[in-house]
Every structure is written in C-alpha cells, then in structure tokens.
Write a protein that binds this DNA or RNA. Structure first.
Lengths: 305, 305
DNA sequence: TTCACCTATCTGAAAATCAGATATAAACTG
DNA sequence: CAGTTTATATCTGATTTTCAGATAGGTGAA
C-alpha cells in the first residue's frame, strides 16, 4: 500500500526531473527517494520512469498517473490545512438560514469574501419557510439566520438589523386589479390574496393581518409568483422576485391609494445565545452588520435616496 | 505525516461507528486502529471522535474532516485502479483527432460507452485543420483520426471507412445566389467561395478543385459560417453546422443544377502502423467500424433511404 | 450485579524506513 | 578519448515505526 510520502516522492521527482533533487527538497537521502519510487512501481505494477538516460523521464503511464498523485497530495494538504484551521477554533462548517423571499444578491460580494477568507469552511445556505426559522436555529441546524424583522423574538435569541427587503404588491398582466391606477382596500378585498408561506396555525405564530379575506397559501414565493402570473390573484412579493416580470410586463405593480405601495421590511440577523458562533460565524455576522446601505439600494431593496 | 492507512482507519471507524469493527474489516488488531486514529488526531491537533460513550462518535471537526479523508481514499483507490488498468496494457490516455467539420453527434453514444468501459482512460478530442491531420497522427499527438476520405494516404497509414459527412452548399439569406432556384457553375463562379481550411500551399497537398476563382480561406468551419451569414460569399459546409441556420432561414441551401447538391463524403478512421493502438484505442476503432449506418442517417449525414 | 463488548495502553517482536557507502552508468570537458 | 561530475540502484546496519496480543478500565444491556 503506497504511503503519502511515496506519492510525494513521485510527484517531486517528476516535477524536478531528478530523484536526487527530490530527495534534497524532501530533506531525505537519495536512496530513500529511489526506493520509494521503486516501491510505488511495485505496488502499481507499472514503470513510472524511464531510467535509460542520465535523468529519469516519465513514462506514458507515469505521466497519466502523475495527475492522480498530485490530486492525492492536494487532498492530503487540504486535510491538514483544514484540520489546522479547526484546531485554531474555526468551525469546519457554517450554515446560514435565509428566509424565503430575502434576496441574496446584496450578499454576493460578502459571500465571495467569505470563500477566500475561510477557504476551509464549507458554507451551507438553507432557505426555510419563515415559520421554521426559529426552530432551525434552536435545533442548531443553522448557526445564523436572516429573517424579516419581527416585533419580538423568543428568549435566548439575539438579533440585529442588517438591511432591508422590499415587498411589492403585484398582479398578473390580465388581472382586474392591474387596470386600476390606484387600488383601495376595498378593491384588494374583492380579489384573492396569495401568501408565500405555509398556512399559520395556532402554534406557528400570528396569522398576520392580511388585506383580503380570500387567501391562498403556497409554500414559497416562486410558487406564488407562478400563481400570480396565471392570474389566480394578487400578492405582495419580494422585489427581487418580481423585478423581471414587471420589466417584461407580465406583472403589474399595484399602486396602493392608502399607503406607500412599496413595503419596506427590515432584515434581522438572528442567532442564539447558547450556541456561540464560531470564528467564521462571528466574521459573517460582523460583515453583515457592516454592510453599507448602498448594497441594499443597488439591489432594489431600498428606494434611491 | 498521516499515512493512507491512517485515513482508512479513520473513515472505516467513522462509517462503522466502532474501532473494533474497523479493525476487523481491515484485518488488523484493534489496537492498531486505536493508535492509528490517535496518531491522526495528534497530527491534526484535532479531536476526531468523542469517546465518552461506549462507541466513538464523530466530533463536529471529525465530521467535517471525514469528507476530506474520503476524498483522499478515493484518490488513492483511483490511482491504484488506474495503474492496474495500465499494467494490463490499457493506455492511460487516448487522443482522437476529428477533422474540423465532421460532426461528433453520431459518436455521442459511443463516447458514453467509452467513458464507462474505460473509466480510467482520459479521452482527448482535438479538431485539427484537415491539413494537419497526417502530421498529428505521425507525431503521435493523436492515436486515432477521423477525416474526410482521400484518394490516398501516405505510407504507414491504415484507414477504414466508418461513416459519412454531408456537405451542403449554402449562402446567406440576402446573398444573390439565395434567390436562384437553381444555380449553375457560372453562377457560382461569379461569387466568392469561402473554404474552411488553411490556404493550401505546395507542401500541404492538392489545392482541390474549387468551383469559384475567388476564394477566401478561414481556419475553421465556424469562421466560415459567420462569414456566410454576413453575406461575404457562399460555402460548402457540413450539414451539422448549417442545419440550424437553414431551419431559421438565416441560411439558404443552394440547389445545384449540375449535380446532386448534397455532397456526401466518406469518413475514414485513420491510424498509423508503427504506433500500435492500445486496448482502448482498439476498442474505439472496432466500435467505429461497427457503427450502424442509422446513426449517420439520424444525424443528417446520410439521406433517408 | 453480571456479562458482553468497547477502547486505551503497554510490551516485545516483526517490519519498514532511513542514511551512508559503494558500484555503475550517463553526460560533459578538455 | 580519458577524466570528471553527477545521477541512480543496491547493499548494510541502525533506527524508527508498526503490529498483535495481553491487560486494564469503562460503558451499556440484561
């Protein structure tokens, strides 16, 4: 069974074109490299180098296997680097729960920075239904959450506002409401409202104050979008989801007579006290808090000032 | 420095949830696995298992690193498997040169079979200019070639017909020739012919007998296609390249008055005698020879019978 | 409590690895 | 063409590592 050191000797020798040079670089005797590669060749039952000339030259098989050996070495290095990172207190995995409907576009730069700063931390993003958010954090399924701000959070939760999410009332191109230059409460109540969440029950928090008595629930905003496009009703949906449809004319933004029709929700970062954030989680939280308002404006979640 | 066996002990113990079971599976003593994992933990400076209960349980860090360790093991197994395959005479790499203009669509199924049959052979497909084909095979850059049949091949070359490539004369939508219901030689000679190859010189074989005295050469068929679409002239191009354009109306197929306007070229598989084909190359050649005519018909390279 | 089973550690033996020395061959030099 | 330099293969004895078996301590189930 070849050892990692065998592979290392092979790769170094192939790259340097010399067993002696490889030995020098490994801080070992030349004979060690010679036997290491000989053993590798025995294990493989394949000649890796052509020794007929002064310096060893890769055979065809050796050249083909070199790529594999490099991969193994890379994997081993990554294993150790990741382990070192974790031994220094950096978690190996970070899960962020982003409530459905909150656009990740304002976060893309931040995520890019994360991937380079914490190359050894695997990042997971889940987009649960709003009703699940608390449980997902409580259970430790995610370390950090981004959700539409609420009046109060359960005990044990920390939260800080980090940004905004703009919701826009829309209807399909051919919907009766789409023809009105201004809609009143009374108009809304005459048509079905489509709500992007699972139906609230007694347990799952407040039902919210919906504007229409006729309500359909769908599990996520994309489903609702499809229903709206098909003319099944109107809905208040995140700007990031409906922007395209409004631009192409498939969707029409409703103009509320009774209030500003763009509805601005705050976005909170939420985490639990007992589950202390790791180094990467802390970094992520700090960067979220430092996010300039511009990125929310540029992504259409804040009106231009 | 952890050895492969250390990683193997780690992965097996994690998967079986028991050091003893891992030892049994590895055919070693339990103490070997115990110390192997302990050493790995020392190398990593990270606790991989929680030993507080009867059976060891992965720590968070262990769970994160498990994926990496599995990757290393996979890599090692693949290295050995590939080496074994090569020790049995299968080449590690196969390069096929397919002359520009020959569609690979008839070969897709064949390539799929190849990838499963010769999982350890990396496949390379190059699409050289027709004039380069011979040199590329001679130099060993490619083991096998697919090219439009010629009257004669240089000595040392083997060839067998394997299929067909249909060439269609086309012009752009607004080209004068496009309006003619039938074109004659005289018509063709009044317009520029675009030829998808580098300009033939005295060395690079016959100039062929082009139909028009005014000729532009472009390095590959796609360049020619763009030129034709821009109205710079007419060209005889492979059916696979112009089919879409003809369907959308951007291209018009010319209707030769003097001969069948679809021009059918045979496709030859070509290889050299001195560079013996390996097992994978032989397989590929045999499968090419056995290709049913249907696949050439279905891909528009043979007229429906 | 008893029993079965698991893990950590110790120990001596077996095996592998290593550095140095030596032999041989290839390229280079004059 | 002989001498020099450098590179690789192999041998050898010492060092290190690895291993199996034995032992001890602990956990969980009956």
């Amino acid at each position: 069974m070849p050892s990692i050191e065998n592979y290392r000797a092979f790769v170094l020798a192939a790259e340097l074109g010399s067993f002696s040079a490889a030995a020098r670089q490994m801080g070992k005797a030349q004979s060690a490299v010679s036997t290491a590669i000989a053993n590798l060749e025995i294990d493989c039952d394949v000649l890796l180098f052509d020794r007929s000339s002064r310096n060893p030259v890769l055979t065809k098989a050796g050249a083909a296997l070199l790529a594999n050996a490099k991969g193994i070495l890379l994997g081993s290095q990554e294993f150790l680097a990741r382990a070192k990172s974790m031994s220094e207190g950096v978690e190996g995995h970070l899960c962020i729960a982003i409530e459905q409907g909150i656009s990740i576009r304002p976060l893309l730069d931040l995520l890019g920075d994360f991937s380079t700063t914490f190359a050894h931390v695997s990042l997971e993003i889940v987009t649960p239904d709003p009703a699940d958010m608390a449980g997902i954090l409580k259970r430790g399924r995610a370390e950090l959450g981004l959700m539409i701000e609420q009046e109060g959070y359960p005990v044990g939760f920390q939260f800080r506002g980090v940004g905004y999410s703009r919701t826009v009332p829309v209807a399909g191109r051919d919907h009766p409401l789409a023809r009105l230059s201004q809609v009143r409460h009374a108009d809304l109540r005459q048509h079905r409202e489509l709500v992007p969440q699972i139906r609230p029950t007694a347990q799952t928090g407040s039902p919210g104050n919906r504007k229409s008595p006729s309500i359909w629930y769908a599990e996520n905003p994309m489903l609702v979008l499809d229903l709206v496009l098909q003319g099944f009703g109107w809905a208040e949906l995140p700007h990031s989801i409906v922007a395209d449809g409004i631009k192409t004319g498939d969707l029409v933004q409703l103009n509320y007579g009774f209030q500003q029709s763009d509805i601005l929700h705050g976005v909170d970062a939420v985490w639990t006290e007992q589950r202390a954030l790791g180094v990467a989680g802390q970094w992520m939280l700090n960067r979220l808090l430092e996010l300039p308002q511009d990125v929310w404006r540029e992504t259409g979640n804040l009106p231009a000032s």
